[in-house]
Amino acid sequence: MAFLLRRLAFYLAAFIAAATVNFFLPRVMPGDPIQIMFGSANANLTVENLNALRLTFGFIDAPIWQQYLTYLQSIFTGDLGRSIRYFPAPVSEILGRATIWTVGLVGIATILAFIVGTGLGIFAAWKRGTRADTAISLLAIFTTAVPAVVISLLALFIFAYQLRWFPSGYAYNPLLDPALSWTYISSVIYHGTLPMVTMFIVLLGGFAITMRNNMINLLGEDYIVMGRAKGLSENRVMFWYAARNALLPTVSNLAIALGTVVGGSLITEVVFNYPGLGNVLYQAILARDYPVIQGQLLIMTAAMLIANFLVDVSYVLLDPRLKKA
């Protein structure tokens, strides 16, 4: 319990650090920070509107620490400002809508990739030195070494443009209205499959190679030899003696791997024109819509911290040595 509380405090600090980056960046750039932040504003923005925005981002006539506190206060009350491009849409609303798509797409792809990748890693480690191991290792090296953007573009080229098996964009047929109907749901599945499979492939190799190497490192341990000496079945030793222990370092690596997940999802969404956070961010970058870009960093940091916390919890559940602490 103390362990998890310590982690929570740490994550809060990390979140504030990300917010601090947001706060200082426009201020350390050469030029007028207000001009930088809101320079690309469109004509809809009245003086009152602009003043409200300035307040949100802490551009007030006060010493810098007061500006900073004002900004932090905005963030912790959930006010991320308004989009410049789609004024007056609040950033939190734009991001909220996109988050649903991203969480669905990335969540499922990550969980599947973790299960399948870890399974392949277990198998490769157990059969180390065989052809199966070589094939899995090479596949894993290949998918981790090729940039996500390249994998996504190739998938798009082959399956959407050449074979025409899948659509080349959108989360569902734009002619449909969202509803709980089979037509709508099947359209969502049809549109989501290719980006999800791509995301899955991007992540698969990393999970497989991590598990393989962690497990091979353990195979010489006495408790595994003892498991075999006990005459237990191969499956029992493979899963409950070797893999179960190798899972611990793998899960703690998972926390770092989540960064790749976030990055990979950005790219996949842009390439497949999928209306998730990545695509929103891409549009915001093109329009230099800074409030949205900054809000994005906070949302993604928050998502990553939550995921990290879930990893911590599962680590505590997996490792009996941490339980009594």
Partner: peptide, 10 residues
């Protein structure tokens, strides 16, 4: 050989 390490820790 290793007393500390021949039981499965989990």
């Amino acid at each position: 050989q290793s007393a500390m390490n021949s039981l499965n820790p989990v």
